[in-house]
Design a protein around this nucleic acid. Structure first.
Length: 1023
RNA sequence: GCUGAAGUGGUGGAAUUGGUAGACACGUUGGACUUAAAAUCCAAUGUCCAUUAGGACGUACGGGUUCAAGUCCCGUCUUCAGUACCA
């Protein structure tokens, strides 16, 4: 008895023990530590690092990590030196919010959350090289984020050479020839100056000018400021003019903030997409975001009355060829010239219109595209060629934030201009030869000739555009121009939990702290809220001034910014804003390249950067398409230009994993509707829940079911003995009136959608809500302990705590093991697809692992021997090698899990015990289910980790078939199959098939018109 | 509106260049083992008709190309994602 028991125990698939042991082994032996010195080719597999939130991981989070881990492990088997690191994007809002609520320092919250994450990640058995971990909130890390910020500040973008350069080069150009001939990225409001003028400017004047050229610069930006929340809100955090959170008023406010001149890189960011292996949809998203449009700027002179000074209206157009079709102009209501141009007659109407549009948020304006509105300003501009007067209107279909905030309206060629002209009865000249524009504008540009356009007549779009631009340039009233939608990125946040800027201010001008004094560490504050004056939280710090003599952060008391130059004593106030979340994540992939021990003096050494280059495979969510993935490309290009890294693009191949959705469970709860007199508090009536099928019947107005349930409900009321109450009839429209679906925890639902009523009743979270609840089963019976079946309704929704459909991987690992979790996440479906999680299905892969185990081990121990593999054994093995290798390389992980199942089923049926087959099989499976693979591999007598084993070589010879089971089709319909030797010729196959009795039966005496024979594939008989 | 992706059994999903549609699982049903349950194993399982052979229909819908279409072409519908008065 004892013997039997012990034997059984050791020989069973004890996944908890196996996984614990091997995770320990990997950690102790640093099995997955990458080396920066290796003869092997390198391969860098990276996951988008997580923000460690307080909620921990749910089963959706590890999906991408499992996929990348499989790939990393596969690449190791294939002989690559693999870098597969992990870390934390640990600055961010939730920890700060928590700090505001509780006073707990965000660093503590973050540390706690990271511990949870690490524990959860470790138990899944990832092959991460944790020795290279990074945390963006660590001072040793953000030191280098600050350092990169300084590099941006010290750089300008040269359009001639198409790269960023040291700002000192620009200074020397200014001092020798002024700025008249420089072709660089800069603000639009720059005055031309000579070398003499430059040299005569004060230092401060020079600094102010340089700020307009630097790749990071201070600018007045209009922001959505919410005074109550004390914070700046993004456009989509505002609904109907108030904050989405809390409904507080929001005002537009100008603030001086740091911006990143990403627009300088617009063209390179666009071009760079050609070189990377990303999905088309992702590339397209970035292209749209960059929004390149080629056209021309045209300036229209405003027709002057004597008293006015001269004004010009600049417009951008993609259709300079249609310039003779201009019949009016439209300015955005916010356009700076509106108040100047408007005539006295029109003043009242214009102001009323501006006031009206100002009330509508930009979002509302964009959403409402149907209403046509606008006002004539009374002013006219002069057409550059015809010199005819052109009416100037304002209209809110023109956006101040795009182009110049003004358009030349060509109603015959643009639908919005057309609608506007029709609505206000403005002339619509037709400049397209032979095109009818009586109903709508002609918006195409191909296959049409320009007419009624003076020197452009008879030309096509291309020629006419070119000539129009040439003529405009000759007049000095326009030039060819490429416009980008991409805006410079605001880089300041009024938050505490982010990187402080290495910046102090002298007389309002920003100064960089010398890189050798970094990091500038976050100061301590008492509260994490903005100050009463509306300054960011760092405004509360007492020790937050920069001592330029001793190069350290000192108490604010020493800083007398108000006083004269002499008495400031070299101590100046520090920047109060912090950097946004994307700062730290824009370069972290380089930090991993350096081993932790060597990270002191560099963000990564030259050798490390040269060796690892960039990320070969990057896996993460699609929500970063225009944020992280654009900003990090921008920073990498800057670092390359300035000679710090060698690559133009950070991520060669990128895959977006799809989201795993929850399968929510519902009970249908009766909403009591009673009539009659009673003192009874109706809110105290018991919950009555209907099983899914019976509620369906009621919804479908099944008369029998309705009567039955109504009687049941009446009985429940009668049994309560609370007076003479009658249950009302079910209402006719059953939309949630008589019973409502209520979420219940998915953990109480089994694979057959049956509810564990006892579990729900005893769940403390719901108090007494369900303790006395009555459950009515499918047959109308009251379901009680162990009696009857109660089914829930199911629906696929995003995983969320409030929907009670979150599944924690901890429970899955405890119940089925990490290998089961890994396999199941992959088995669910294609990596990139959205798919629902249903814990019930995990038994499939779990049973597979048990079968796999039994292939190697029975009650008597290991059953593997050195027997010569049979032909079938080898065929199964090599079929599997081929398929799994192809699948991994195509990131089709779900199908390789099926392939493993087939292989194990076949080898089981073949009663295979041959080590020559079963050992390579383990290597195939090990990227997916590494723990069981390691365990069985060591049982086979290996003393090293299976991760060092070579991937089995596929040999096609084992798959050569001597015969083929041909499907025989008649008119395309498969009727029967016929086993024929592979080496038959076409004619021989045809002969064999035609002679077959089933063929004769099918033909019923007819003579086939045609017989298609594809050797090795199919036979089709027509006729 | 535009751009991109997709639509296959009760469910998740296979089907790599057009060549046996529904692999592999889940679920369901039946059976074996057991006092019983669980676990395990075996069998069936697209729909409909015939229940024995077999037949008809079937990959969102309507057409087309082809000996042969889930796959290619044209049109329509639906869902999801991104984006939006972009001049």
């Amino acid at each position: 008895m004892t013997l039997y028991k012990r034997k059984n125990k050791t020989m069973q698939y004890d996944f908890n023990r196996i996984e614990r042991d091997w995770q320990k082994y990997w950690a102790e032996n640093q099995t997955f530590k990458a080396s920066n010195n290796s003869d092997k080719p390198k391969y860098y597999v990276l996951d988008m690092f997580p923000y460690p939130s307080g909620a921990g991981l749910h089963v959706g989070h590890p999906l991408g990590y499992i996929a990348s881990d499989i790939y990393a492990r596969y690449k190791r088997h294939k002989g690559f030196n693999v870098l597969h690191p992990q870390g934390y994007d640990s600055f961010g809002l939730p920890a700060e919010q928590y700090a505001i609520q509780t006073g707990q320092h965000p660093a503590i919250t973050t540390e706690t959350n990271i511990k949870t994450y690490r524990r959860q990640l470790d138990q899944i058995g990832f092959s991460f090289d944790w020795s290279r971990e990074v945390r963006t909130s660590n001072p040793e890390y953000y030191k280098w984020t600050q350092w990169i910020f300084i590099q941006l500040f010290e750089s300008y973008y040269c359009n001639n050479d198409n790269k960023a350069k040291d700002i000192t080069e620009l200074v020397s150009i200014f001092s020798s020839e002024g700025n008249a001939n420089v072709n660089v990225a800069c603000d639009d409001d720059i005055e031309v100056f000579t070398a003499e003028a430059w040299n005569s400017f004060s230092t401060e004047e020079q600094q102010a000018i340089l700020l307009k050229y630097r790749l990071t610069y201070l600018a007045e930006t209009e922001v959505n400021w919410c005074p109550v929340l004390g914070t700046v809100l993004a456009n989509d955090e505002i609904v109907n003019g108030v904050s989405e959170r809390g409904g507080h008023p929001v005002v537009r406010k100008k603030m001086t903030q740091w911006s990143m001149r990403i627009s300088a890189y617009a063209e390179r960011l666009l071009q760079g997409l050609e070189a990377v292996d990303w999905t088309d949809s992702l590339k397209e998203t970035q292209r749209n975001w960059i929004g390149k449009s080629v056209g021309a700027t045209v300036s229209f002179n405003v027709t002057q009355s004597e008293s006015e000074e001269s004004h010009k209206i600049e417009v951008f157009t993609t259709r300079p060829d249609t310039i003779f079709g201009v019949s009016f102009m439209t300015l955005a209501p916010e356009h700076e010239l509106v108040s100047i141009l408007t005539t006295a007659d029109q003043k009242e109407a214009v102001e009323a219109y501006i006031e009206k549009t100002a009330k509508r948020s930009e979002r509302d304006r964009m959403a409402d595209v149907k209403t046509i509105s606008g006002v004539f300003t009374g002013a006219y501009a002069e057409h550059p060629f015809t010199k005819e007067p052109v009416q100037i209107w304002i209209g809110d279909y023109v956006l101040a934030s795009y182009g110049t905030g003004a358009v030349m309206a060509v109603p015959c060629g643009d639908q919005r201009d057309y609608d506007f002209a029709k609505h206000f009865n403005i002339e619509i000249p037709n400049i397209f030869e032979g095109v009818d524009i009586s109903e709508e504008a002609f918006t195409g540009k191909d296959n049409v000739k320009i007419a009624n356009s003076d020197f452009l007549n008879g030309m096509n779009y291309k020629k006419a555009s070119k000539l129009a631009i040439y003529e405009l340039e000759k007049l000095g009233q326009g030039e060819g121009k490429t416009n980008y939608r991409l805006r410079d990125a605001v880089f300041s946040r009024q938050r505490y939990w982010g990187e402080p800027f290495p910046v102090y201010y002298v007389n309002g001008m920003p100064q960089m702290i010398d890189a050798q004094h970094l990091p500038i560490q976050l100061p301590e504050v008492e509260k994490y809220l903005p100050t009463e004056e509306g300054e960011p939280p760092l405004g509360r710090a007492d020790v937050w001034a920069w001592d330029t003599k001793n190069n350290k952060v000192v108490s604010n008391d020493l800083c007398h910014s108000e006083q004269s130059e002499e008495s400031h004593n070299g101590i100046y106030p520090l920047e109060l804003n912090t950097m946004p979340g994307w700062a730290g994540s824009s370069w972290y992939f380089f930090r991993y390249m350096e081993e932790a021990a060597n990270r002191g003096d560099v963000f990564a050494s030259e050798d490390a950067l040269k060796y690892w280059e960039n990320v070969d495979l990057y896996i993460g969510g699609a929500e970063h398409a225009t944020g992280h993935l654009l900003y990090s490309r921008f920073w990498v290009k800057l670092l390359k230009d300035r000679g710090f890294v060698n690559v133009e693009e950070p991520f060669k191949k990128l895959i977006n994993q799809g989201m795993i959705l929850g399968t929510s469970a519902f009970v249908k709860r009766i909403a009591w509707s009673l009539s009659g007199e009673s003192d009874f508090d109706q809110t105290k009536l018991p919950y009555v829940c209907l099983s899914e099928d019976i509620s369906e019947k009621i919804i479908n107005k099944d008369a029998v079911a309705i009567v039955e349930i109504k009687n049941k409900l009446q009985k429940i009321i009668d049994d309560l003995g609370i007076g003479n109450l009658r249950v009302n009839n079910f209402s006719n429209d059953l939309d949630g009136l008589d019973f409502m679906p209520v979420h219940v925890k998915v953990q109480y639902v089994n694979a057959s959608d049956e509810l564990n009523i006892e579990g729900l009743k005893n769940d403390g979270e719901f108090g007494d809500d369900y303790a006395n609840a009555i459950f009515i089963g499918n047959k109308g019976e009251i379901v009680e302990e162990g009696k009857g079946v109660f089914k829930v309704g199911r629906e696929v929704e995003k995983m969320s705590k409030s929907k009670y459909n979150v599944v924690n991987p901890d429970n899955i690992v405890a119940d089925y093991g990490a290998d089961s979790l890994r396999l199941y996440e992959m088995f669910l479906g294609p990596l990139e697809q959205y798919k629902p999680w249903n814990t019930a299905g995990i038994t499939g892969v779990h049973n597979f692992l048990k079968k796999l185990w039994k292939l190697y081990v029975d009650d008597n121990g290991l059953k593997i021997n050195d027997a010569e593999p049979t032909k079938d054994n080898l065929k199964t093995l090599h079929k599997t090698i081929k398929k799994v290798q192809e699948d991994i390389e195509n990131f089709s992980f779900n199908t390789s899990v099926s392939t493993f199942m087939i292989a194990v089923n076949e080898l089981g049926a073949q009663k295979c015990t041959s080590k020559d087959v079963l050992e390579p099989l383990l290597v195939l499976i090990s990227p997916y289910a590494p723990h069981i693979a390691e365990e069985l591999y060591s049982k086979l007598g290996n003393s090293t980790s299976i991760s060092t084993a070579a991937f089995p070589e596929f040999e096609a010879s084992h798959l050569v078939e001597s015969s083929k089971n041909y499907p025989i089709s008649f008119n395309g319909k498969m009727r029967f199959t016929l086993e024929l030797p592979m080496d038959l010729s076409k004619d021989e196959i045809e002969k064999a098939v035609m002679a077959h009795e089933k063929t004769i039966a099918q033909l019923e005496g007819r003579t086939p018109k045609k017989v298609i024979v594809v050797p090795g594939k199919i036979v089709n008989i027509v006729g």
